[in-house]
Structure formats: structure tokens, C-alpha cells
């Protein structure tokens, strides 16, 4: 194995680690958001439409930390 091979292997490994670990946080966070939204919907079914909308927007914002790791992984694979 030459140096270039090691660097290439390290890039793929790093991209996998970045994406795998980076996906944990947003997944837990979005699950919590969905659980609480369901809680609210069960208690007040008439609020369902507004709760669903707010939940989806909140989840889309929560997702951004996962998106950062995705961007890092993409940069590692395609750019660096």
C-alpha cells in the first residue's frame, strides 16, 4: 500500500465515521420532537394540523447538524 492508497482509504473511512456518528444526534432529536408532537395531538386532536406543521419545520431545523456532517462527508469524498 502506497501513501496515496492510505490517504484514499482514510478519506472513505472518515466520511463513513462522520456520517454515521453525525446521524445519531438529529435522529434522536427528531424522534423526541415527533414523540412530543404525537403526545400533543393525542391530547388535543383539533390542533393536529398546526402541530404537524410546526413539528416538520422544527425537525427540518434540527436536521441541520446532520446536514453538516453530510456536507463534511461529501467534501471528504468528492472534493478533498
Amino acid at each position: 500500500m502506497t501513501g496515496a492508497d492510505i490517504v484514499a482509504a482514510a478519506k472513505y473511512l472518515a466520511a463513513g465515521i462522520a456520517m454515521g456518528l453525525g446521524a445519531i444526534g438529529p435522529a434522536i432529536g427528531e424522534g423526541i420532537a415527533a414523540a412530543h408532537a404525537l403526545d400533543g395531538m393525542a391530547r388535543q386532536p383539533e390542533m393536529e394540523a398546526s402541530l404537524l406543521r410546526t413539528m416538520i419545520i422544527g425537525q427540518a431545523i434540527t436536521e441541520s447538524t446532520g446536514v453538516y456532517s453530510l456536507v463534511v462527508a461529501i467534501i471528504l469524498i468528492f472534493v478533498a
Partner: peptide, 15 residues
Amino acid sequence: SHAFRLFGNILGGAI
């Protein structure tokens, strides 16, 4: 983060 959120979501979806 405003720019990267949109970029990452759409590019990630495409990939």
C-alpha cells in the same frame, strides 16, 4: 447554516 441546510438537504437527497 442557512445556506448549508438547503444545500446539504437537496444534494443529499439527490445522491
